[in-house]
Nucleic acid binder design. Structure first.
Lengths: 202, 202
DNA sequence: GCAAATTAATGATTTATTCAAG
DNA sequence: CTTGAATAAATCATTAATTTGC
């Protein structure tokens, strides 16, 4: 996996990027400065350790379970022995770093999600197609004057609409966003047309 | 942003590791403390990361082998039964939505939501405050290179994090958005400062 | 020490732009 | 062409930190 080297948004402190082009009068990083990590960089380091710790713990737990007989591996009941975390804790505690909850942590297998961050948009999932019922309800809500619902409200609405067909919160969010934006755009165009003495677009 | 990195101070009441824990009291490193790390300590940090990386790789390899042996293992998080089964075929008049189905088919109540669309933002709900555990997991995911999760993925992540404390999808979305934007901004500023011959902002 | 006042972080909201599926 | 999806940016608002005056 080696991605440990990669994600560091703030590059490791490389020996002073010699701003060879000396900004004459001003400050310049000294060798000593370069040797220091900025708090941000430090933070990144800590997070990396925390992340590794978490992954390690999960992996260890997984392995243990497997080793202890493949017999009872079931998702929900999944007892977490909390052992094995000790190692990580020892490792990281030496510097006051919290393993992302080593010992305290989730009693569920932390899923690993994929979302390639940079790469071109992956093969996208087929896009949502609102059922007529959903659409009707959405329009209705929109007509009510409701703007893009946020927070808990969005969750509720999504739940409601889920009774009418497949949907998720992102769909709801997108729909409202697009609806509003496009209404406004249409409005603008209509006005522009009118102002120009053309017949307004339908 | 930096001190939010605080190591989950007092781990949630976890029954897990009995004796081994030397729960660091309430203390946590301030930015200043961090800045005081000696080069040796920094070096140690790097070594720790390297160590974690190695251990992770080994553990993962091990786990994979084990899993392949056992083969009855189904990963969590893949199955999303996209509720296609009972999707309603509803014809909707502008409001009443009748879904037909066997058994109880209550005419759909169509709840009324409030979201004052124009008016000054009402008394807003108290804003979400991520638990240390949630924060750790979020950082971890972010470090993994994950961008703002969308669609179903976001739902899954939210569900996962919901086990660590109150949260909703919007929170997750916002967090990622803000995180990314602010990382980028910090980066820009750092570069700008350097280019201008000023000491990079902490 | 403590609480009011100020500031820094960071969660939440909105808008605009662009891409791409159907 | 229509519309769902994805992302960035700017801005607002609230909460946590920190400072300040007593």
């Amino acid at each position: 996996m080696e991605q440990q080297a990669q994600p560091a948004p703030s590059p490791a402190p490389s020996p002073a990027p010699p701003a060879a082009e000396a900004p004459p009068p001003q400050w310049r990083p000294t060798a000593e400065d370069a040797a220091k990590l900025t708090p941000t960089q430090l933070d990144t380091l800590r997070h990396q350790i925390a992340a590794f710790s978490h992954v390690c713990n999960q992996a260890i737990i997984l392995a243990q379970q497997k080793v202890e007989e493949g017999k009872s591996f079931n998702a929900p009941g999944n007892s977490l022995p909390g052992r094995g975390a000790g190692v990580m804790h020892a490792l990281s505690s030496s510097m006051g770093i919290s393993a992302s909850g080593a010992g305290a942590q989730p009693s569920y297998p932390a899923p690993v999600y994929n979302k390639n961050p940079d790469g071109p948009r992956g093969p996208s999932a087929p896009r949502w197609n609102p059922t007529p019922a959903q659409l009707a309800r959405l329009e209705e809500l929109f007509l009510t004057g409701m703007g893009t619902p946020n927070g808990e409200l969005r969750t509720q609405i999504t739940e409601e609409l889920a009774k009418l067909g497949p949907i998720n919160e992102a769909n709801v969010y997108n729909w409202f966003q697009n609806k509003k934006a496009r209404m406004k755009k249409a409005e603008r165009e209509r006005e522009a047309a009118l102002a120009a003495g053309r017949p307004p677009p339908v």
